[in-house]
């Protein structure tokens, strides 16, 4: 995970790990095991016909792999929200889904302009969505809270004028 820390920026960090899973998450990140499957997809800026494809592809793959439907729903919602955020709020980026036999580790990396205050962005109802984004029905300021609610671990790294990294871990079994 530290690989993504762009040292030249003064990046702010946000972590949320479901209680009781701290050790499991730390252990996973420390081990740096090769994923079984990697899906990578580009997310262009403000194209809401394309945004969502990565999540949809991932959902279909995990369904084929037999992931439990409640867990699948949590993964689908979290990944869709994060994918839409890249399209809605950044100049574009990519989604990388690392599939393991017991968990999914998703990374959303965009090309800026970054988040000036991550704690504020996490507040339900906080949104800087522009008119176009709102026309599409986004901009309630509930995407990041939804991601937090559905993830076992959420890590955000960003700063104004920098790329944003959003990382999500969801275990397939409790």
């Amino acid at each position: 995970m530290q690989d993504f820390v762009a040292a030249k920026f003064e990046m702010a960090e946000y972590w949320h790990i479901n209680s009781g899973l701290e050790e499991r998450v730390k252990e996973f990140l420390a081990k740096k095991i090769e994923p079984d499957v990697v899906l990578q997809i580009d997310i262009p800026e403000k194209d809401f016909n394309i945004a969502g494809r990565g999540s949809s592809e991932l959902k279909n793959l995990l369904k084929r792999l037999g992931v439990d439907s409640d867990i699948l729903r949590r993964i689908a919602v979290a990944s869709y929200e994060a994918e839409i955020n890249v399209a809605a709020h950044s100049i574009g980026g990519k989604m990388i889904s690392n599939v393991y036999d017991d968990l999914i580790y998703m990374q959303f990396i965009d090309n800026g302009p970054g988040i000036s205050d991550i704690e504020q962005a996490m507040i339900p109802g906080y949104s800087t969505a522009d008119d176009l984004v709102r026309e599409f029905g986004f901009g309630a300021g509930l995407g990041l809270p939804n991601i937090k609610k559905n993830s076992d671990a959420l890590h955000i790294e960003s700063a104004l004028g920098s790329p944003t990294l959003v990382e999500i871990i969801i275990f397939f079994l409790k």
Binding site: V77, Y80, E81, F136, G137, F138, G139, A140, G141, L142, G143, P145, N146, K149
Partner: peptide, 9 residues
């Protein structure tokens, strides 16, 4: 609702 994130949440 007409806000997509609210529906998903």
């Amino acid at each position: 609702c007409d806000m997509l994130s609210d529906v998903m949440g």
